[in-house]
Amino acid sequence: MDAKLFSVKSLTLSGTRLFWLLAIALTAIAFIFDVDLKTTVLGGRSLLLPLLLCSVVTAALGSWVIPMLVRLKTGQVIREDGPQAHLKKAGTPTMGGVFFIPVAVLIGSIWSGFSPEALAVCALTVAYGFIGWLDDWQILRLKSNKGISPKMKLGLQVLFGALFCLWLALTQPSTLSAIALPFGIVLPLGFLFWPIAEFVLVAESNATNLTDGVDGLMGGTGAIAFLGLAALVAPTHPDLALLCACFSGSCLGFVAHNRNPARVFMGDTGSLALGGALAAIALTTNTLWGLFLISGLFFVESLSVIAQVLYYKATKGPDGIGKRLLKMAPLHHHLELSGWSELEIVGSFYAISMAAIFLALLLH
């Protein structure tokens, strides 16, 4: 089957038009899955209000921060072995996570009534954002694509993840006992909670990091994923649903500047933080299965990298050179080199992410 059947090539799209389609879709989803969130400090019955507020604040703040990032010479260093079309993006400011993550964290904390659960998730998000900032800063300082060492990055992810899991163990021991699966199936965990939770935190943050490679891709799919998770957890955890709506709105506001052609990139500062937040919310609400479906696209992106590396190693010849399963990993780069435009990739991935939300809610 021709993969192009799933593209949006037949549509005449621009980055701006795709952004507004995303905004309309998110608004419609927030309206459809609106619930009575009585814990909100600011009042109101809506996932839509925090989403819109964070969108507007982030977009406005970005207009002020992006010129500052340009003056600070935070221009992205582009991989020479990446898609050649990306070379023209060299110099576009990165570290965009420094302005849209704080908006979600601050407004989300306030709107959720400073819920201990929301504050814990925000703390983990900031911690993972700090890891990403260290990586981005090292890349900019050395003017290369090599940031902090993989061991250091993994070690910090595991450390902050362990602290979050310890908080869960002390405050919500019932969360550690089992994983809820579809059709009323419950999988007992016991001590296995710890390695599984650590894996989810590390894997999700790295998956969102890998997905961030095309203008508007991670920002838009992140906005969709957070809103889907909000709808999933709203009946039982309205405070975290509000936090999810804030993250969704901040991602949308970021896409206003990150749409093709991007004026700013989120960098590891943003992408690692987003994955950490998604995983932390799913762990706190025992919705790991829902997270798996909602963020399935991120999982596929990660799987494409793993498959590429394993296949290359397995096919190494006497000369030490192996074969490539994909033209380039992650998957979005393979599609680029196969003739897809960035807008086709982003539009198709948005549609897949939307479908994943309804599948997760259907099986919940």
Rank of each mutant, 00 (worst) to 15 (best):
G15A: 09
G228C: 06
L326I: 00
V56H: 00
F33C: 04
F183R: 07
E80S: 05
V65K: 03
H334F: 05
A262H: 10
K73F: 00
L168D: 07
R17D: 05
R263D: 06
K89W: 00
F292V: 13
T269F: 01
F265V: 07
V305T: 14
S338H: 03
A127T: 05
G91W: 10
T236M: 04
I185A: 14
R71C: 00
V65H: 01
L272D: 13
D239K: 03
I107A: 15
F199I: 13
V158F: 08
T74Y: 02
A225Q: 11
L119W: 11
L229A: 10
K9P: 04
S144C: 12
I29T: 10
P116E: 11
T171C: 06
S7T: 14
R79G: 06
F193G: 09
I185L: 15
F199K: 08
L361N: 01
A169K: 15
V56N: 00
L325V: 03
E336S: 07
P261T: 09
M266R: 07
V121K: 10
M328F: 14
F358W: 12
V200C: 14
R141L: 11
F298M: 15
I196P: 06
C246H: 08
S353H: 10
I66W: 00
G249Q: 06
R141I: 03
F349T: 05
G253S: 04
L362K: 14
T92S: 13
L310F: 10
E342P: 05
S46T: 04
W111C: 07
W167G: 04
T58P: 03
N209P: 13
L343I: 15
K38D: 08
P261L: 03
L181K: 02
P330C: 08
A273S: 08
L119S: 11
A262F: 09
K153G: 02
C165W: 02
V35N: 01
L303R: 04
W167I: 10
L310N: 11
F193R: 12
